[in-house]
Amino acid sequence: MQEKLESLCERVQRASDVGDLQAATEQLRDYYDVAHIVYHWVNSVGERFGAGTYSQEWVDRYVEKDYLRMDPVILGCLQRFNPVDWKELDWSSRASRDFLREAINFGVGNQGLTIPIRGPAGQFALFTASDHCDDYVWAVFVDENMRDLMIIAHEFNKKALEFEQGGDSAPVPTLSPRELEAMTYLAKGLSRSQAAKEMEISEHTLRVYIEAARHKLGAMNTTHAVARALSRGLIVV
C-alpha cells in the first residue's frame, strides 16, 4: 500500500499542469477510498485555483451561491495552520447548517479533514479529504492518515508554487552538505545512531536533518527519501 502512495506522490511531482493535479486528486480519492480529495490554492495576490473531485453540479452551485464568502471550512481554516476536522468548525449559524446539508446532498460527505498550508510570501492553500461515514470510522481514518495527508498536501502546494513561478520543470532539490551526508550514511545501511555518531551530532538533530531532506525530496518517508536521493544522483554509495 505504502508503495502505491509513494508512486501517487511522485505523480503529483510530475504534474505539468492543473489537469495533472486534477488527475492526482482522483487517484488519491480512489487510493484512500473516500468521497473526495480537493486542493484549493490562493496566491499572494488573491488569485485562486483548485483541483478536486467534487461534482461539477456542486462546483457550479457553490459558485452561483458565492459560498466562498460563508463556507465555514474556508473561513475557519484561513487563520490556522493545524489540520482541522470539520467538526471543530463553527456550524452554529443557520446559514452554515443549511450549507452543510446542501453539501451533503451534493455528495460532499458529512466528514472532512482540511489541512491548511502556509507557503512563502502570504500564499496559502487548503487540502481536504471528505467522506460519508460515522464519527468513529472517520476518527480512525484521520488518526491513521493525517501525517501522510499533510505530506501530500504540501506536495500539491509545492507544485502550485512552481506553476505560479512559471517554471517549466520541477527544480531538482538541492540538499545541504550535512543533509547529503546524513542521506549517504542511511543509504549505506547505517542506523540512525551510527550515522549520528559519524556526523558527531545527536540522533535527534540527525532526525531533523533527515526530515528536512525528506521534505525537500518530496518523499513520503525516510526510505523513500533515500531512494529518491539515489535515483536523482544527489548521493552516490
Partner: peptide
C-alpha cells in the same frame, strides 16, 4: 543550523 534549511510540515 549547519546550513540546513529547516522546513517541513511536521516541524
Amino acid at each position: 543550523t549547519d546550513g540546513v534549511l529547516i522546513q517541513s510540515p511536521l516541524i
